[in-house]
């Protein structure tokens, strides 16, 4: 992925040599003060004592993490058992995000391939059609999905009118609805990076494979997919990471039984639960998981570059 990203790694122009620090300073200050420092304070908060109705008391404790992993009974005096509630919510989030990634890949790869192999003029039109939903308000898109799949929504209405079903299919407020929402939300995120990789793919490789009597399928799995792998991995991360912390799809489409990490965290700050240290701890655990994914990604990219 060298070049084209503004990493400033190439042969560097020096027109404004010596001005680097003052020019970069505003970005450092804004992101440093209003993102890096807040994350550090959040880390501190996750080790503080909760105050009822939000906020914290400045007394260090491991209570938030303890509550996350262990069940000590109603009064906290029983021997600790593993608390499955939150682990299950995290597991559900990982499973849903993973499934959304796989589904997006199954639809997104052929789409990206098809668009990238169009003649240049029609390619821009296809690409434009994929880009538009990418920039449409995510809330609006999730509401649209909710409207469509409600029990008495248009989809069920049409199927009933057509006589294909005798009673409405109940999808809303199920795990399937959340999955549909995640898939629908992040599908364009899969197509665009794969498209960029296919566009750079050297088709002489396919010809060489064909000359050596490789079938289409063998060419696809043994030649093409390994060549465009960086794009595939980038697409998978762009779908998996936001799906993992998604709030709108589980909240609007999933109802109370399909809680994901995002809803769990939100409830600690906005909802009735009001446990800031616990919310901060859950956010830290989510951030750690995302960082692990990103480190794996960076290492795979570094290996690819070598």
């Amino acid at each position: 992925m060298a070049g084209g990203l503004g990493q400033g790694t190439g042969k560097s122009a020096r027109t404004y040599a010596g001005l680097g620090v003052p020019l970069i300073l505003p970005a450092w200050l804004i992101i440093g003060i209003f993102l890096v420092v807040p994350i550090l304070i959040m880390l501190v908060y996750s080790f503080l004592t909760k105050e009822f109705r939000g906020g914290v008391i400045w007394e260090p404790t491991l209570a938030a993490y303890d509550q996350f992993f262990f069940d000590r009974g109603l009064f906290g005096d029983e021997p600790p058992k593993i608390e499955w509630t939150y682990i299950l919510i995290f597991w559900r989030s990982i499973w849903q995000a993973g499934l959304a990634t796989v589904l997006c890949l199954l639809i997104g790869f052929p789409t990206a391939w098809f668009i990238a192999t169009r003649p240049p003029n029609s390619r821009t039109i296809w690409l434009f059609l994929i880009t538009v939903p990418y920039w449409v308000n995510l809330l609006i898109r999730t509401i649209s999905m909710k409207f469509l799949i409600r029990d008495n929504g248009p989809l069920n209405q049409w199927l009933l009118d057509a006589g294909l079903i005798s009673e409405p299919i109940h999808v809303i407020n199920t795990a399937t609805a959340v999955q549909l929402g995640l898939f629908y939300s992040y599908l364009p995120f899969m197509v665009l990076p794969i498209y960029a990789a296919v566009e750079r793919y050297n088709f002489a490789l396919s010809e060489a494979a064909a000359d050596l009597y490789a079938s289409r399928w063998v060419t696809l799995t043994q030649v093409i997919i390994p060549s465009v792998k960086p794009g595939i991995i980038a697409g998978c991360i762009l779908v998996f990471v936001p799906s993992l912390g998604a709030f709108l799809a589980p909240d609007l489409l999933g109802g109370a039984k399909n809680f994901m990490i995002g809803s769990l965290i939100e409830e600690q700050f906005k909802g009735a639960a009001g446990n800031w240290p616990f919310g901060a701890a859950a956010a830290m655990i989510l951030l750690t998981m995302v960082l692990i994914v990103l480190i794996f990604y960076a290492r795979s990219q570094a290996r690819g570059a070598r």
Binding site: Q7, S12, A13, G20, L23, V36, I39, G262, E266, L287
Partner: peptide, 28 residues
């Protein structure tokens, strides 16, 4: 700064910092 000012202190970390808001999940 990144593309026209040659090298300066902290340039290596700057690219990661600029993109940090993209990497941290929104809810975090």
């Amino acid at each position: 700064a990144m593309l026209r000012a040659g090298s300066f202190r902290g340039k290596g970390a700057s690219f990661a910092l600029i993109n940090l808001p993209l990497m941290v999940p929104e809810i975090v």
